[in-house]
């Protein structure tokens, strides 16, 4: 039995602790906003926060999250439903196309802005280049991060 907190809620998970966090949140907890993309930490679609740090959940065993706080895309808006500044900026710039990578993009962007409230283009490139968008919305992602930074 592995104990952890997911989006502020305590959870006890009875599964092989080697199971990647991705599959635990999706299949055990039904939080399907976090996506499977590559299974090898190459695309960032599965990005979640563990104790505030962005990690690729597809290669992070559950055991590494034991006793920690996991935040998924479902957990970044305020409890009253008010969207995070990054999510608002994503809508403002009409960022998503297919949208599949966007949970991961947003989780990486939220983590970046927490570390660095006013990132340069290079900062954004280096924080975001692990997140692939096959629809190629990089220009919009960058613009949205800057908007969110101003609003934050």
């Amino acid at each position: 039995m592995v104990q952890l907190t997911v989006n502020g809620k305590a959870q006890k998970i009875d599964i092989d602790p080697e199971t990647p966090v991705l599959w635990v949140v999706r299949e055990q907890l039904g939080l399907v906003g976090t996506k499977f993309g590559c299974g090898a930490s190459l695309c960032g679609a599965c990005t979640v926060h563990i104790d505030g740090e962005p990690v690729r959940s597809c290669v992070t065993p559950l055991s590494e999250a034991e006793g920690k706080d996991v935040t998924t895309i479902e957990g970044i808006a305020a409890p009253d439903g008010t969207l995070h500044a990054v999510q608002e900026a994503w809508i403002k710039h009409q960022v998503p196309q297919c949208g599949y990578c966007q949970s991961g993009q947003i989780m990486s962007a939220v983590a970046l802005l927490k570390e660095n409230a006013n990132p340069s283009d290079e900062d954004i490139d280096s924080a975001m280049s692990g997140n692939v968008c096959r629809c190629g919305m990089y220009t919009r992602i960058k613009a949205a991060i800057k908007t969110a930074a101003k609003g934050a």
Binding site: E74, A77, I91, G99
Partner: peptide, 27 residues
Amino acid sequence: LPRVDIPAKVDGTAMFGIDAQVEGIKY
């Protein structure tokens, strides 16, 4: 016009094929 499918794509609620929920599902 703001695209109608976008809001659900920023909060994790957009349902893709891989997100199908069916009772008793196996993988």
